[in-house]
Design a protein around this nucleic acid. Structure first.
Lengths: 192, 192
DNA sequence: GTCTATATACCGATAGAC
DNA sequence: GTCTATCGGTATATAGAC
C-alpha cells in the first residue's frame, strides 16, 4: 500500500497525470514502469491492483480539496479570492499538459470503473458542489457577485462549465478556456 | 466499408452507444459481436479497423448536425426554438442511457485517438461552436435573449456547460441536468 | 456476408529469486 | 523493494472455408 515512500509518490503522481491525459482505460502499468524506469512488478508491490491505484488518486484529490477548504486561513479569505482559487485549480490542469479535470475524466469512463472508484468520485463531486454552492450563496448575500436562481443550481452550472471547458480546450485551443472563464465572471458581474 | 446495409447500421448504432457510455477505450469488437449476435470477424468485414468505425461515428454525427442546421425549415425557426433543439439534443443522450455527448467522450480520450478521429471531432466542435455563436448573436440582436460579452464566448460557455452537465449527471443524479439547463436559460433571461 | 480458427500484441497480475 | 519470468485473459486484426 502507498504511504509516503518516494517510489509510491512518484507512481501516484505519474498515474494521476496519465489518468487525466489518457483516461482510466488509456494508461497501463507498462506506461508507468517505462517512464519511471522500474518494472511493472515493482508497481504492483506498491499498488497491488489498478483499482488500488485509481482509488488512491481520487482519495488524494479529495483530501487535497478538503484540506484547503477546511484550512482556517482559506476560510476567511474574501469570496472572490476563494472563487479565484477554484478557477486556478482548473487552469492548473491545462498548464500541466492539457489535463482534463479528474471528475470529467472519471465521469466519461464511469461505467467501466470499479465500484470503489465510482463511490469515491461521487463523494468528491458532492463535496465540490456543496462547497461551491455555499461560496456563491455567500457571495450573493454579501453583494460581491450577482446571479439569478438558486445558488445550488448556479454552482452546478459553473462546475459543469469548468469541466467542459478543459475538454473543449483540447479541440478548439487552450485560449478558449480563459475566454470561458472570463464569461463566467462576466455572468457573475465580476471581473477576473 | 459501411454504406447502408442493415448490419452496418446496427453496428454503427451500437458502437455509438457504447462509445458514449464506456469511452473509446472502454468498448471492444467483442462487446459489439456479443450484443449483435454475430462474430467479431463479421464486424471487421464492415469496419476493417476500430479507427474506421470510430471515424464513421464522428462523421455520422457531423452529417446529422449539419443536415439539421442547413435544412431551410429549421433555419427559419425562431431563435429560441433552435436553442431548444440544441438543448434537447443533449437531453436525449441522458434519456438514451446516461450517455455523455460525443465531443465530451472523445475529448477525454483525445490523446489516445488515431489522428483521423482527432481531426474529425475537432471539425465537429468547430462547426458546433460557430453555429451556436451565430444563434446567440441573432438572439441578442432581436431582443429574444440577453447576455454580456461576446456571443462567441457565451457560446463556448454554454457548450462547455452542456458537455459537463451530462458528466456531472452521472455522479450527482440525472435531475441535476435539468437544473443546469434551467440555469442556462435563466442566465439568458429566457424560460425553458 | 458470415463463419471458424488463429496470429500477434498488450493487459493486469503473481511467483519466487535476490 | 526490485528484479526476472510467466500465466491467463482479452484486445485488434487476418486467412480462408462456406
Amino acid at each position: 500500500m502507498a504511504s509516503r515512500g518516494t517510489t509510491s509518490r512518484r507512481i501516484l503522481e505519474l498515474a494521476e497525470s496519465l489518468l487525466q491525459r489518457l483516461g482510466y482505460n488509456g494508461f497501463s502499468y507498462h506506461h508507468l514502469s517505462q517512464e519511471l524506469g522500474i518494472k511493472n512488478a515493482a508497481i504492483h508491490y506498491h499498488f497491488p491492483t489498478k483499482e488500488d491505484l485509481g482509488l488512491q488518486i481520487v482519495e488524494q484529490t479529495r483530501k487535497r480539496f478538503n484540506k484547503w477548504c477546511n484550512n482556517p486561513e482559506n476560510r476567511i479569505l474574501p469570496v472572490k479570492q476563494q472563487l479565484d482559487w477554484l478557477v486556478q485549480t482548473y487552469h492548473y490542469n491545462l498548464k500541466l499538459g492539457n489535463r482534463v479535470c479528474l471528475i470529467g475524466a472519471l465521469a466519461t469512463d464511469y461505467y467501466t470503473l470499479p465500484a470503489s472508484m465510482q463511490n469515491a468520485v461521487k463523494e468528491l463531486s458532492y463535496e465540490l458542489q456543496h462547497w461551491t454552492a455555499r461560496l456563491l450563496e455567500n457571495g450573493r448575500e454579501s453583494g460581491v457577485m450577482d446571479f439569478k436562481g438558486r445558488s445550488n443550481h448556479k454552482a452546478l452550472c459553473i462546475l459543469s462549465t469548468l469541466t467542459g471547458s478543459l475538454q473543449l480546450a483540447r479541440l478548439l485551443g487552450n485560449e478558449r478556456h480563459q475566454q470561458i472563464v472570463d464569461q463566467i465572471y462576466l455572468d457573475l458581474n465580476l471581473t477576473y
